[in-house]
Design a protein around this nucleic acid. Structure first.
Lengths: 250, 250
DNA sequence: AATTATATGTTCTATATAGAACATAATAAT
DNA sequence: ATTATTATGTTCTATATAGAACATATAATT
């Protein structure tokens, strides 16, 4: 048990995070030495509403949800961040905090970077700066689409969208999360997720068992999802296609 | 009629837009000569989904909504921009376009700035850069809150929130917009707005008549609104409190 | 092996909103 | 003045989801 965990940690590298991987050599030289690998367990809160942040996090194999909790206690996810992105946007946009919380939705690792290191490199105004702003723009797209999705689409459709977003960030066809957790993220009742997931299971699209979901038919899942998944994916691909490091190859 | 319009144009100045007003003298000297005052009529589209932008707009007395239109034709507003902000965020964040549209919701004027001038000043990395990023952060807050609001709050509450957002940006207690238009923004049926507005009128909070709304009791309107209005206002005030020009007085 | 905790399944009623069809009133156009 | 257009009001039914109460099944703990 102990050894497996150690092995897993050894497998992790900054290059697993797309943003870190995309940095040009010069930036890597300055940033990589400042990165600290941390394990982030399920349910951990990286940021609380209104509290000043001190670190940015670049997930490698973990997923973190940004979610709002309302006065009534009801909650809803506004975006999801995995190895394609980073957490801590207000550190460079300004404000150092947000009204939202950041909760680990799938345990794993992330590289931690202190605000000072982040801001110093950001303020150089080069590729790092531009990459972070482009990623932020893609996150804006995701939030905007979530707003519209919440307004117009059914739980059935939203569950599909959400599973796809999570799959993409984990790079597997297996998710470890309970229906209760998913319900909290979507901002709906657990019973609603049970029904929607039951339909998907009976249709042979997914298979699940006490917090363990296997996606059997991804194309079908994409068909059953609302357009929101594809819109966000297309836009994110467009925004992050010409990453600094790739530009070197052109 | 002709004279009144001319008078109105003469009254407009860049200082009516909070962002333009907040710029330090040096930036003003470079930016103001590049600004072109334009009239923007109700319903005009400033940006279309997926089309590259060529100008940023700083509204003075107009309101513009960012809205998504779905495949089904259904729409929903994701944020609202008036004299506290600017349109054209992808010009400095990257991407030059978004999946959303920008539709004039309340006619008036705005100062137009060509992308080149915007980018040149932004790339200097000074107060202009920081101010625009902070404003973007406040817009992110608004979008996130809209997502949650769409999930959990009633039409009655959302109508109040929306009226308050619009009032703040116009600086009056009068709005000129039909229930049909409001319904499109909220992403609900026109009938739903008729009912909600009817309740507010019977309660003496507003008075309306064919596209003309007068707010009689603003404190009551704030009480009837969901928390979303206050959360966004508080956060926006926090983010934009220490504007560059104000910093000079400290 | 027995017990407890956790995750999921089922089923009821209540409610907000959608969808639809049509009525009425105010303004604009002829 | 008459007609057309636009904005608002009303009232049906249908439906998705919430709220609630409880059953069952699987895993963890003792």
């Amino acid at each position: 048990m102990h050894e497996t965990k150690a092995d897993k940690l050894a497998e992790i590298s900054p290059a697993q995070n797309y943003l870190l991987a995309a940095l040009p050599a010069g930036v890597k030289q300055r940033i990589y030495p400042q990165l600290e690998l941390v394990k982030i367990p399920l349910g951990k809160s990286l940021y609380e509403s209104g509290y000043a942040m001190q670190h940015a996090y670049f997930p490698t194999d973990s997923i973190v949800s940004l979610l709002y909790v309302m006065e009534s206690g009801a909650s809803a996810e506004i975006s999801i961040v995995g190895n394609e992105g980073l957490l801590g946007i207000p550190l460079f946009m300004g404000g150092r905090s947000t009204p939202s919380r950041a909760i680990v939705q799938s345990a794993g690792c992330a590289y931690q970077l202190h605000e000072k290191g982040l801001q110093e490199e950001f303020n150089r105004g080069g590729d790092f700066h531009n990459l972070l702003l482009r990623y932020t723009q893609s996150l804006i797209t995701q939030m905007a689409q979530t707003a519209v999705c919440n307004r117009h689409h059914t739980i059935d459709q939203q569950l599909c969208r959400w599973l796809l977003l999570s799959l993409d960030r984990l790079g597997t066809n297996t998710l470890n999360m309970t229906q209760e957790l998913i319900a909290n993220m979507l901002g709906v009742r657990r019973e609603g997720v049970t029904e929607a997931a039951g339909k998907l299971q009976r249709a042979g699209v997914i298979e699940y068992k006490r917090g363990h979901i296997v996606v059997l038919d991804r194309p079908r899942l994409e068909e059953l999802s609302c357009e929101c998944y594809a819109v966000v994916k297309r836009e994110t691909d467009r925004l992050l296609r010409y990453l600094p490091s790739r530009a070197l190859h052109h």
